[in-house]
């Protein structure tokens, strides 16, 4: 099950915890993977770990020209982009009254606008191929909201609306567009929490623990696979029961 042999996948934010695990899962299923991220070193390390069928594609998603060129570079390196995983994301948290325009815009640019640009570029080749998979990594807070994260939550809710609209546009061409919405996952982003914050979060999670990057990667793998061809415009929530939606 879930055989991606012969498919090429571009994963953004592959230098991060969840992105690296997504790349491992897709690669493990036989896909060629394009590893994108801002920091070259962890991308090179991941490529070395995975071995064959990997391409390192550094890209700063806050620079529009870089974003525009990324899908082209990936297609040149891998022959095509059959699977696009928009996983890269940033936070610039702050209460709304103290949030600057810059902090708002930076998060919208990287999380939402770059996702739009990469989808637009990738869909072209997928339409010709009559097959494609786009998986956008949203977040539980896009649905529930979270104090201190108006920018992040707006960007993640925006990804859901984008995905549903795009899904409707391209469904007839064998292309699916879905979201995976992680809850609290053990990553560098949640490592910053102190014990008290951590305990507070866990009281809201019926599973009683944080999720793992592997559990997010498994959801992405499913949505990227041929078996999920009839699933589109969906958001798969992976949050330990924290929000049952």
């Amino acid at each position: 099950m879930f055989d991606l042999t012969g498919k090429s996948a571009l994963v953004t934010g592959a230098s991060g915890g969840i992105g690296a695990e997504i790349a491992r899962a897709l690669h493990g299923a036989g896909a060629t993977v394009g590893l994108s991220g801002t920091r070259t070193e962890p991308l090179e390390a991941l490529a070395a770990e995975l071995g064959a069928r990997t391409h390192v594609l550094p890209c700063n998603l806050s620079i529009p020209a870089d974003v525009e060129g990324l899908v082209k570079r990936a297609a040149e390196a891998m022959g095509a982009v059959d699977i696009l995983v928009n996983n890269a994301g940033i936070t610039r948290d702050g209460l709304v009254m103290r949030m600057s325009d810059e902090d708002w815009q930076a998060v919208i640019d990287v999380n939402l606008t770059a996702t739009f640009r990469l989808c637009r570029a990738a869909v072209r080749g997928m339409m010709k191929a009559r097959w494609g998979r786009i998986v956008n990594i949203s977040s539980v807070v896009g649905t529930t909201g979270n104090p201190g994260q108006v920018n992040y939550a707006a960007s993640k809710a925006g990804m859901v609306g984008l995905s549903k609209s795009l899904a409707a546009e391209v469904a007839s061409r064998g292309i699916t567009v879905n979201c995976v919405a992680p809850g609290f996952i053990e990553t560098a982003m949640t490592d910053k929490l102190n014990d008290q914050q951590r305990a507070g979060i866990l009281t809201a999670v019926p599973a009683g623990r944080m999720g793992t990057p592997q559990e997010i990667a498994a959801a992405v793998l499913y949505l990227a696979a041929p078996e999920a061809g009839y699933v589109t415009g969906a958001t798969l929530h992976v949050n330990g029961g924290m929000a049952m939606i």
Partner: peptide, 11 residues
């Protein structure tokens, strides 16, 4: 043709 076909034709 559907609307998507016309976009593809133009491209």
């Amino acid at each position: 043709a559907d609307s998507l076909d016309t976009v593809e034709l133009v491209m």
